[in-house]
Design a protein around this nucleic acid. Sequence first.
DNA 1: GGTAGCGTACTCGGATAGAAGTTGTCCGAGTGCGACAGG
DNA 2: CCTGTCGCACTCGGACAACTTCTATCCGAGTACGCTACC
Lengths: 153, 153
Amino acid sequence: MSEGVEWALHTCVNLAWVGRPVGSARLAAFYGLPPAYLNKRLQNLVRAGILTSVPGPKGGFTLARDPASISLLDVVTAIEGPDPAFRCTGILGDSPWGDKTADHPSSCVIAVAMRRAELAWRRELAGQTIADVCATVERRAPGEPERTRRWFG
Amino acid sequence: MSEGVEWALHTCVNLAWVGRPVGSARLAAFYGLPPAYLNKRLQNLVRAGILTSVPGPKGGFTLARDPASISLLDVVTAIEGPDPAFRCTGILGDSPWGDKTADHPSSCVIAVAMRRAELAWRRELAGQTIADVCATVERRAPGEPERTRRWFG
DNA sequence: GGTAGCGTACTCGGATAGAAGTTGTCCGAGTGCGACAGG
DNA sequence: CCTGTCGCACTCGGACAACTTCTATCCGAGTACGCTACC
């Protein structure tokens, strides 16, 4: 899985705490990440409707909607793309008595088993939101949001 | 995810049906796959203790143990490696007040959430064995094992 | 005719190229602020 | 002193390389069979 997923998730949490536009350069400086590349990843989140971007001075990135409505799956999908990790190429259709017209991703027993596992993965990710992460961190370290907000301000 | 995972899974099912050594060339011919590359992947399964290899004529690959004791997770892990898809690099330690000595993969809320999801994925995969897949296919197409055995023989 | 030795053909196994995706970098288009000149 | 205009600095956004991983291929080491020659 892309390393950008980790960056995007942590950045979303920071943005949830700050609450106003922050430039990619400053967001990257917080973790010592390459600014341009983080920018490239945040663009993925903008296209997915997770962030909104504001150009010009005082511009930057902000969460496009409430943190409680942004699941971890949303972020992961925005970065990694919508394709499942296991992709059935339908090699059963290439077997001696294979049917190339059949819908193998749906009929192949192996493909179904793999998709079921991936669905369980997605369900877990969809059940956790950015707001949940923020709440857990805040419960563990109550001063974290304020401290972060100050650093970015 | 590597495409070789799909090849390895289907090949394991075929090997379970045939029950005796089959060379990688013939296994690859069944699906029209590149023989040498399939061989390379089956070597991964040998190292993982899933298959046994027999050199020389009449040689080839065989399941090393009962199909009921080979889970889909075993095969996936053998091909993809033991590392989890999401890898916590501990960027929290690089934040302004980050602690580089902390065990971030265990303490970071995001890392924990991602690992939980991946655990659900692994659990689903571990719950399905090659024998289960064989049984499901056989229930749907009763003649499949015999037909496959004949093609390889 | 039976048997020991040898050659051959076939297998796996690891070392070697090519393609694709990820990671990293750069520069251009657009925007808001601040300075400056004029009224 | 107030206001309209201009320049500038800062932002995102997409286009352009370097590197790692995946895909594909080739050739060498080892083994079992089959043939041959000998007893």
